[in-house]
Write a protein that binds this DNA or RNA. Structure first.
Lengths: 135, 135, 135, 135
DNA sequence: GTGGTCTAGACCACA
DNA sequence: GTGGTCTAGACCACA
């Protein structure tokens, strides 16, 4: 399991960047989906409570709530009345089927477009990627 | 100069993705900035008219106009008599100074985060990147 | 097309009852779904804007927004950047397939349960239903 | 007395639907009120213990407790030594006075609204109601 | 404690 | 004008 340090110096599963232009709820949603897909969050794993995640990332509970609701309707999360939500078994099965490389695609597209527009060679891009990965 | 084929089958300098979550104006702005920074759009190069770009990408002229105005105030573009915009000399100078790898950074960050959350190895990510690049 | 008069005396497509125990967003969602399913709201019909509906029913725009978003993800509504949402063609097709009686089921269940617990006969229930219908 | 079979296959006086959107405590409260009103639960009849009802319907004892307390304060139930609850004589009297059709009203309203929005005729609605009743 | 609903209201993106 | 995102915060349902 990979832990990250968020903007407030606390260890967390997620990294949210409020300046990226991508809505916070979309960033959070995508990250939970990936962690479930890869099995790093296994079926049955309880997610942080809405309030906890909101405090930890200094965002509004409603934003988290929206993400949890959408992931529930996608079948990635399961809701338990009055108790914490968990990763759904169904979500895990879906994950097993999915090609991880496919989930990477939008990010590859963005990187390739940027690389070409900056007139970099594939070699240069790969080199900087490797440096960034090791960090 | 790299040309791309947009969603409407016409050749264009830019690729706009309305489903990425990133605002259209931000996508366009970033792409013009990169093309200027890399010198693929040289100082003095005229940009497409607002109307032309709007039609080509099926977006509102106001969106293009806003981008052009902001890039003008940043010194990347220059406005001439009529409304003709060109790449500013100043923009080129700024570009020469900038480290291209730095402009790649947000995209590398996004890719690395996605890769780790999908539990992929560096090798796998590099391989899919190479495939995507050659396409 | 049936018009109703809401609690504020204005004609409207929907009737929301804040005291029924059923969340407002759920009432609104179900009603739009039914009007689309029956074809009383045809594909392409623009819906009232979020603000308009919110004002008309004295509810919060966020509540309406939530309903519209969910119906969009269900394929009942279509979103148009910067313009009003419309009934989706897809929604209409789905409607054609659906058995209307099926959508009535939860309400029949509720009525039958109440009738039996009140020890009424089928005849009595049908009679009061007919009276209520004609009103 | 009508008995129903609940979701857990056990005979019970009540049917609770956790997906209806109506709070559980409201469903339970309304059903006890109706059974008392119709005389199917006569004055003096002991109710199931909180614990028993909670287990039978897989809900929290606190939810049942809240319902019993509210019905007691309404005069529908009476609390005896220990915690045994019975139908109050007063509740029966109230029931005798009440017009059963009135208690049916919210359900009739919901059904009529749904029927009209689904563009069904009164005949169709009555027919499906009859089918459902016989089941 | 958990999540759900709703409000009032700010500010942004897009047409 | 349209919808989208986000906040701060109240109050409810349920365990």
């Amino acid at each position: 399991m990979h832990y990250f340090t968020n903007a407030h110096g606390r260890p967390t599963l997620f990294i949210l960047n409020p300046h990226s232009g991508i809505p916070l709820y979309r960033q959070l949603q995508e990250q939970i989906r990936r962690l479930a897909a890869s099995g790093q969050l296994e079926p049955g794993t309880p997610l942080p409570s809405i309030r906890e995640l909101a405090v930890r990332h200094a965002i509004n509970p409603m934003t988290v709530s929206k993400v949890y609701s959408q992931l529930e309707s996608e079948g990635v999360l399961e809701r338990h009345r009055g108790k914490q939500m968990t990763i759904a078994a169904k979500g895990a099965r879906a994950a097993a089927r999915a090609d991880p490389a496919e989930q990477l695609q939008p990010h590859l597209d963005g990187l390739v477009l940027a690389g070409r527009q900056l007139d970099l060679s594939l070699g240069e891009v790969v080199r900087t990627l490797k440096e960034r990965w090791e960090k």
